[in-house]
Amino acid sequence: MTTNTNDELAQIFEGWSSTVGKPTLKDNARMTTRGVDVFYGEKQAIFGVDLDIGKNEVLAMIGPSGCGKSTFLRTLNRMNDTIDICRVKGDIHLDGDNIYDKKMDVVNLRARVGMVFQKPNPFPKSIYDNVAYGPRIHGLVTRKAELDEIVETALQKASIWNEVKDRLDQPATGLSGGQQQRLCIARTIAVSPEVILMDEPCSALDPIATARIEELIAELSENFTIAIVTHSMQQAARVSSRTAYFHLGRLVEVGATDKIFTAPEHRLTEDYITGRFG
């Protein structure tokens, strides 16, 4: 941080009330979050975030590292449940269902809100079994032919079918990094989720592989709602329709992507996208 001392930040966040821009959507919202706080033990990581994710939109979340964007993303399909000391407050709804409700089943939730991780993490199984994993555990198919069709469709949709169709029974760990990440996307869409969360999906990939994933995100947005966390502003600009800027656990500004990158309203957002820190 070059322009903001901690004192200045404290001033900015003192009596923090609202996010600049329009975090909420009138209709068309697939997921809504209201007043979300996240704590790791005693430490608060997310402060009162209100944010909606619309149907079939690509929402990018950007911000300096440690700003809580990944933490926030992980609350959306309750991946934070696997961390003992993590607590989440506030309301998060998926299609009107409160996902932190006691009645909400986390297994079911994660089948509806899929996730793609920073590092490609194919299971040590064959390519076919990786994609078939989700449908199998959820018992989504009744016949082998149906499963074959789903696997093929998912791989096609993840634009990797042509590369792997002749070696579906080979271990997925033998694929290149970019292929592995597309396989992980195929694995996620094979359970037909409503929302796909992507946590810096290209950070471990080379530029060519990154470009292919970015194309893929654009195609997927026709059918899925996508929230993507990225450390690359250019990537956010290329793939998303809306962008949310996070800073020190707060959602500072939300808006249409081109507006955020051309005419940000908040000073922090401006400082970030003009490269004064990050």
Binding site: M79, T82, V107, M115, F117
Partner: peptide
Amino acid sequence: VPRSLRDGSYGLGAT
């Protein structure tokens, strides 16, 4: 066994 494999599985809704 790396955590990322567990995450991958939980992320798909596995118990």
